[in-house]
């Protein structure tokens, strides 16, 4: 599904990713762990095509297509979704208009007719339940005045609406209390199918307790330095990252 080969990327001339290799197969959940500044968020931003980041070399294939040549919106249409670490507030743009624009853009890309207003609202109602998102929030401006937890729930709600095949969760667990984490994680699990995959960026084990990753990677200084099973995450939770650093040195 996703094949990253020798990916190098920089921001403002500073090289952050220094040769990433990563393959995600359909149905797999990969966890990406690492200390601050290791390049985790850079990788997610590069994958979704944030224009602030520059890819200097390497390839990324997504379902057989060259991802790096696509616009951010086309990557989304092809099934890529990013749950933002810091969801953006957009005052004056209602959630309804925002989601309708997104859904209809995707339908247009796949040569489908726009969704009727009634069908769309019905879909909104159903998908809201996945993350127990209040109908009042759905009627407000995008993320405006949402609490930290509401913003993250709103991300998973959007994921439910757009039905991506590969979701990147960028520290979706940060800033969540225990209940909110459970709602978000359970919401995510409800959306899983044998064909959908995820790349989960996190510092903590507790999200992974819910999501049960198949593969765990450790990112350090722009490279994946260690890959293992779920037990690797547990080990990091207990011992931190220093032992891996020592292992490499």
């Amino acid at each position: 599904m996703l094949e990253i080969r020798d990916l190098y990327a920089s921001i403002n001339g500073k090289e952050i990713l220094k040769g990433i290799n990563l393959t995600v197969n359909p149905g797999e959940i990969h966890a990406l762990m690492g200390q601050n500044g290791a390049g985790k968020s850079t990788l997610s931003n590069v994958l979704v095509g944030n224009p602030a980041y520059e890819v200097t070399s390497g390839t990324v294939m997504f379902n057989g297509k060259n991802l790096l040549e696509m616009s951010p919106e086309d990557r989304a249409h092809e099934g890529l979704f990013l749950s933002f670490q810091h969801p953006v507030e957009i005052p004056g743009v209602s959630m309804v208009n925002f989601m309708r624009a997104a859904i209809n853009a995707k339908r247009k890309y796949h040569q489908q007719e726009p969704m009727s207003a009634a069908d769309f609202l019905k879909m909104m109602r159903e998908k809201r339940k996945v993350v127990e998102l209040d109908s009042k929030l759905a009627n407000r401006s995008v993320n405006e005045g949402f609490s930290g937890g509401e913003k993250k729930r709103n991300e998973i709600f959007q994921m439910a609406m757009l039905e991506p095949t590969l979701s990147i969760l960028d520290e979706t667990d940060s800033g969540l209390d225990v209940d909110a984490l459970r709602i978000v994680a359970e919401g995510f699990n409800k959306l899983r199918t044998p064909e959908t995959s995820a790349l989960v960026i996190t510092h903590y084990q507790r999200l992974l307790d819910y999501l049960k990753p198949d593969v765990v990677h450790v990112l350090m200084n722009g490279r994946i330095v260690k890959t293992g099973g779920p037990e690797l995450a547990m080990e990091i939770e207990n011992k931190g990252f220093d032992w891996i650093k020592e292992e490499i040195d």
Binding site: S71, E73, A76, F98, A102
Partner: peptide, 17 residues
């Protein structure tokens, strides 16, 4: 960029803003 990641084209996103 947030809107584009959700599939909304740049023109449409600018229009919405």
């Amino acid at each position: 960029f947030y809107m584009r990641q959700r599939g909304i084209s740049l023109d449409e996103a600018r229009m919405l803003l």
